[in-house]
């Protein structure tokens, strides 16, 4: 359905004195989602997950430059094609509930999303979709400020699925939600995948996303360090290949809460070699001078010299 190859995003900005400056915010992203799959993109805050979503949809700000390859349904995604397919064939569940128009009633916003996705105005079934996600009918008459966090997340889910988009990109859809509401939303996403859609689940909540994911792509400092099947995240993480993936897994409370020492490097000052080298306990000489290439594994790929 969707594959991303060597995707990099740069921002150009002008410093004082009109000096042009380029900041590389994500580099060499690798990713693939198939029909019927939920692929989780896991990484800490600021690692470039939202930018990935925006790059796929073509809604990055004007000073962003994208390189690399995005394939959707077998053909390359160009800016022109993005305009045509976003909202229709691929839909976003945005990260922030501030993405709802504060002055428009929920029903109208869902209807508008439906119309934009190609449904005729009088054929958009707002009540149906509200009920599908357990929202009371009168939600349609409410304004965003009247919704609870959980309701707002469901409404965002509704706007993304009122049409017939085949790819749903969910950016932190369960952020800040209680256990119950979160697992409810996750099960809806799983259900959508089972109905044949492809779901890209962007999250920093690895443990919850594992409940429904088929595959996990691990993000670190603006790049993908590993793609592994969800089953690899079990026991002590022996089936994981990248030291950071293992560290992420072991840092979870149920696995002993072993945090990795150090912090993620700032994007302007990435190390020359492996981005994880400053925090890795297996660092060899080569790690410091060369970026590790993508190497296939049994469940996906890894970017490490010593996998």
């Amino acid at each position: 359905m969707l594959s991303v190859h060597q995707l990099s995003v740069r921002f150009t900005s002008y410093e004082t004195g009109l000096k042009k400056k380029e900041t590389l915010v994500t580099s060499d992203l690798e990713l693939a989602v198939e029909k019927g799959q939920v692929v989780a993109v896991a990484g800490s805050s600021g690692s470039g997950k939202s930018l990935l979503a925006h790059a796929i949809l073509g809604i990055l700000p004007g000073n962003a430059r994208v390189s690399g390859e995005i394939m959707f349904k077998g053909t390359p995604v160009t800016p022109k094609r993005q305009i045509k397919i976003r909202g229709k064939e691929m839909a976003l569940i945005p990260q922030s509930i501030g993405c709802l128009d504060p002055l428009m009633r929920i029903g109208k916003q869902i209807t508008r999303a439906g119309i934009l996705s190609g449904i005729e105005k009088n054929k958009v079934r707002v009540t149906n979709i509200l009920r599908r996600y357990g929202l009371p009918d009168h939600t349609a008459n409410m304004f965003p400020f009247q919704l609870s966090g959980g309701m707002a997340r469901r409404v965002l889910l509704a706007t993304a699925t009122v049409g017939k988009a085949d790819l749903i990109i969910a950016d932190e859809p369960i952020h800040g939600l209680h256990e119950e509401v979160a697992s409810d939303i996750l099960s809806h996403l799983r259900e959508l995948a089972d109905q044949g859609k492809a779901i890209l689940l962007i999250t920093h909540d690895l443990s919850r996303s594992l409940l429904i994911a088929d595959k996990v792509v691990v993000f670190y400092a603006g790049t993908t360090v590993e793609e592994a099947s969800a089953t690899a995240f079990s026991g002590e993480g022996k089936n994981l290949h990248h030291p950071y993936s293992r560290a992420l897994w072991q840092a979870l409370p149920q696995n002993g809460f072993f945090p990795v020492s150090g912090t993620q490097p700032v994007l302007d000052h990435l190390p020359e070699g492996c981005v994880f080298a400053p925090r890795c306990d297996k660092t060899k000489f080569i790690c410091k001078i060369k970026r590790p290439p993508v190497m296939p594994t049994d469940g996906g790929f890894v970017r490490c010299f010593h996998a």
Binding site: I59, G87, A91, P94, G98, D101, R112, L116, S117
Partner: peptide, 23 residues
């Protein structure tokens, strides 16, 4: 954010202005 979201739903800049901006 809500304009960016509208654009991601397939709205044009004029469409986003008409449906969300003016309001």
């Amino acid at each position: 954010d809500f304009i960016l979201f509208a654009i991601s739903q397939g709205e044009t800049i004029w469409g986003a202005t008409r449906h969300h901006g003016i309001r």
